[in-house]
Write a protein that binds this DNA or RNA. Structure first.
Lengths: 359, 359
DNA sequence: TTGAAAGCGCTAACAT
DNA sequence: ATGTTAGCGCTTTCAA
């Protein structure tokens, strides 16, 4: 009666067509032919026929049986943020090559969302986690740890939990940026950051603070409350600038704050770097192309991705008990990419030969 | 001997603790208590205990049994492209609210990658597909259609296949942009596009061509080969500009081309809009914040996302045979957001009161 | 009203 | 060397 359209081939079909048992087929397909001493002839016949009919095992059944899904859950703060998008893409590619799939989701730094996503990933039985932890999810992470599911954090870590993590030395980055500004002759350097007190933000703040303390120079830290509505953020930065006219340079602690900052600066009609020098944490298309181009503290995205996935896959493939092994923690170095927004004397770049006369 | 740490609660545990059958528990949990005439008292006891122990059914087992995963596969061109990232995020949110999860992947417009991803999603038994089709995947899409798995395309469609799709009227967008440039007094308008001949690109080209034809004005279309290496793209645009000094305005067919274009223009030291007016397809942080701000043809991202997910969920929940129903196709209107990059006479925007004297 | 039991498609221990 | 079979955890029909 019903018009059955799908008729996937099953392992059963293969076995009966070939007149062997399904165990033989399964063994061959899982590369265990040799160790089960299945004859090469049979193995080859199986492989050939499987290829011929395009048989694909049902992953659901396989996973249900083995308890392994070969899926990794990736929880980032915001996949639309180019930093996270880049790292995610790199991680995905490497995982794919090694037979793992990634499913990713953004928390928007909301602990509730983060908890929900972790729960969802657990329900989906991911084999491992890669997490950019938002505040207040210590409990969920420690649950994962207790269940001995492999996990690697990146960008920041949870100081109270013995997890693997890969982070960047934010303090070193901001310290270097601050020294660069001082060397350029800026003396009133402000630091604009978020209201987060997570490790990566505190480190970035600390690098700035320490250098200025050493020089006995004034610090000026502005913490901006990050809301969904961007207008108050921009307005807040504008107000800060107006209230502190002596400030001659600003270090932004993260890429999106810099973007809001550029908007605020543009609205106030201030010129970069003449009125105000700018350095941002994180690189971005916008910063490269902005006029003037923005100096940034760039994070080593390839290295972050590579190390994260290496650590995770190692645990995934390691039969040993993870709980007993010491967690791995890695601190990578950022690099300062100097562009025009932080140079006191504008550098004159020679025009290309024969500038075209358009218009 | 072994230290078993995980001990998930199973439906069995619930049933035996409550001294009811597992069928009863299952029925209650799936909201079929009423229709199976299970007593309210029992139903309530089940729900209460389930809540208490935090029982979560094993999705793998459930899916294996029901054949439904409640997962939708989303295949986009490039998740790092703000246009796709935004639409994906909106789709994800709406799907989530309705009990579906999204797994997404980027094809980078490589047919092989697209095929691989579709295969992977099929292996994972997604309930439905949302796809931004790259060229050459007609076969895969028609396979999906034949298996009667619901699918919705967006951004572009495959003219030969009767699928649901949601696209934007690119021709209308570029026509309006072209007219705007003409109204501003630009007469030598070039169109820079990719080497793609897919529907969305051809439509954008056509809007431009038609308006200029009507006015008997010269067309100048430059097709840029998009490669992974960005340098040749930028250089190509530079060469085009140098070879065509009479061009006084450019329409870019997509956001990333505009970004390369801005780089080329900046290298040549040309001024926008005095030497060259610029309009981009797609909005972007960069375009809003660039000096001067870039006029864009903006796509209605919210509407795209909403319609895509509505059509898909409708099919997912509709018991009827999809193959017989006519596919839905939707063409939405873009909007021209006029900024300074396309205005012949620079508009003077009054500075905010009391511009601060910094530095 | 509720319970027993038959699978969903696969793997792997145990037979042969 | 290969076949038999007992589950993985759940849903759902059918019987009681």
């Amino acid at each position: 009666m019903s018009t059955k359209v799908k008729k996937r081939t099953l392992i059963n079909d293969i076995a009966s067509h070939l007149e062997v048992s399904i165990a033989t087929v399964s063994l061959v397909l899982n590369g265990k032919a040799k160790q089960s001493r299945i004859s090469d002839a049979v193995a080859e016949r199986v492989l050939k026929y499987v290829e011929e009919v395009g048989y694909k095992p049902n992953h659901l059944a396989k996973s249900l049986r083995t308890g392994k899904t070969h899926v990794i859950g990736l929880v980032v703060e915001d996949i639309a943020n180019p930093f996270f998008a880049t790292v995610a893409a790199l991680i995905e590619r490497q995982a794919f090559e090694r037979g793992y799939r990634i499913i990713y989701c953004s928390t928007n730094n909301e602990p509730a969302k983060a908890r929900e996503l972790i729960a969802m990933f657990q329900e989906r039985h991911v084999d491992g986690f890669i997490v950019v932890p938002s505040e207040g999810i210590d409990k969920e992470v420690s649950d994962i740890l207790r269940e001995q599911t492999p996990i690697v954090l990146f960008d920041r870590y949870l100081p109270d939990l013995p997890t693997n993590y890969v982070v960047v030395d934010g303090a070193q980055g901001t310290a270097e940026a601050t020294r660069h500004l001082l060397a350029q002759g800026y003396t009133n350097i402000a630091f604009i950051t978020t209201d987060s007190v997570q490790t990566q933000m505190e480190a970035r703040l600390q690098g700035y603070t320490q250098v200025l303390e050493e020089q006995n120079l004034p610090r000026k830290v502005q913490r901006v409350v990050v809301t969904k509505d961007t207008e108050p953020i921009i307005a807040g930065i504008q107000e800060f600038l107006q209230a502190n006219p002596e400030v001659d340079a600003i270090l932004f602690s993260t890429n999106y704050l810099s973007i809001y900052g550029l908007e605020a600066i543009s609205r106030l009609g201030l010129r970069i770097p003449d009125d105000l020098a700018i350095i941002s944490y994180d690189d971005h298309d916008l910063f490269r192309l902005y006029t003037p181009a923005i100096t940034v503290i760039a994070q080593p995205v390839e290295s972050i991705a590579k190390n994260v996935i290496d650590i995770l896959l190692h645990e995934l493939q390691e039969p040993g008990d993870q709980a007993t092994a010491a967690p791995q923690s890695l601190v990578l170095a950022p690099s300062l990419v100097i562009r025009k927004s932080s140079l006191k004397t504008a550098v004159v770049i020679p025009k290309p030969v024969a500038a075209v006369g358009l218009g």
